[in-house]
């Protein structure tokens, strides 16, 4: 049998290593989208990945790219060092909400503020995954986690932090968008957003970040389908989708 048309295949930029993510987790979808974008842009040969600490700590191994793992939260500083050393390479960080919005807040804010010409893919699932479901800075009010067993209380724990909105106030941020991957349409939208973010870097326009709202069925204690519904019904209320800053108009 001959193949007339390839409808789907594993992106070249993904390695053969099997994903270690739980069923229903969105990391895998987002990994695939990033790899497809890198393939389509033909930039694999010059791309270096900075993985975080968190569930996606192994991401450096899931991509068939040069890569490293940063200390918890420090990926934007590591990426900065790489980009300054090799300005013509494509550098991206892949970070979760504990990594980016808690321990690494200073690093992401200053990388964005410098207009560091890197791309960040930010996975926000409102919980610490790898350590077993503790409260994240993005945990919703009232949401139960192992360290907010009675539900997140604003008086004690403050409010869910909106990183995309916050970073979009900085002049160095060129493109910031929040998306989700709960439906095929949303997957397509997310892929377009990720592609745009890399194109912003290719054009040298400054800092770009795509925040992807994601599920964590294991730590949320839900089935994959329930968790998708919960994401759409609850997370998007606190974290609305959309483009928060676009300083690329007329430049791309």
């Amino acid at each position: 049998m001959t193949i007339d048309k390839i409808v789907a295949q594993t992106p070249k930029s993904l390695s053969k290593v099997e994903f270690s993510y739980c069923p229903g987790c969105h990391h895998g979808i987002v990994h695939r989208l990033i790899a497809e974008v890198i393939d389509e842009l033909g930039i694999a040969s010059k791309t270096i990945m900075v993985a975080p600490v968190g569930c996606s700590v192994f991401a450096y191994n899931f991509f068939d790219l040069d890569g490293t793992v940063a200390a918890h939260g420090r990926a934007p500083a590591v990426a900065t060092g790489m980009k300054r050393a090799l300005p013509d390479r494509i550098i991206f960080t892949y970070q979760g909400d504990g990594d980016l919005a808690s321990i690494g807040t200073a690093e992401i804010v200053h990388a964005a503020n410098r207009g560091e010409n890197i791309t960040t893919i930010f996975i926000n699932n409102a919980v610490y995954g790898m350590t077993g479901g503790q409260m994240a800075p993005t945990t919703l009010l009232g949401q139960k986690t192992t360290t907010s067993p009675y539900g997140r209380d604003a008086k004690a724990n403050g409010y869910p932090i909106r990183m995309s909105e916050m970073l979009s106030t900085l002049d160095g941020s060129a493109y910031i968008e929040r998306t989700m991957v709960t439906t095929p349409q949303n997957v397509i939208k997310t892929k377009a957003a990720i592609k745009k973010a890399f194109q912003v870097q290719l054009k040298g326009l400054g800092f770009s970040m795509i925040e992807v709202l994601s599920t964590c069925p294991t730590n949320w204690g839900m089935t994959p389908i329930e968790s998708m519904k919960w994401l759409e019904d609850h997370m998007t209320k606190t974290f609305p989708l959309g483009v928060f800053v676009d300083r690329t108009k007329g430049l791309m």
């Binding site: 200390a71 420090r74 500083a77 990426a79 900065t80 050393a85 090799l86 200053h110």
Partner: peptide, 26 residues
């Protein structure tokens, strides 16, 4: 060459990490 004033020493050492990954003298 490249000079960069970081936002903290925590960031400095991680910038060093990133730059050192590229095999340059940092």
């Amino acid at each position: 060459g490249t000079f960069l004033q970081s936002e903290s020493e925590v960031a400095t050492v991680n910038m060093l990490y990133g730059a050192a990954c590229t095999g340059r003298k940092v």
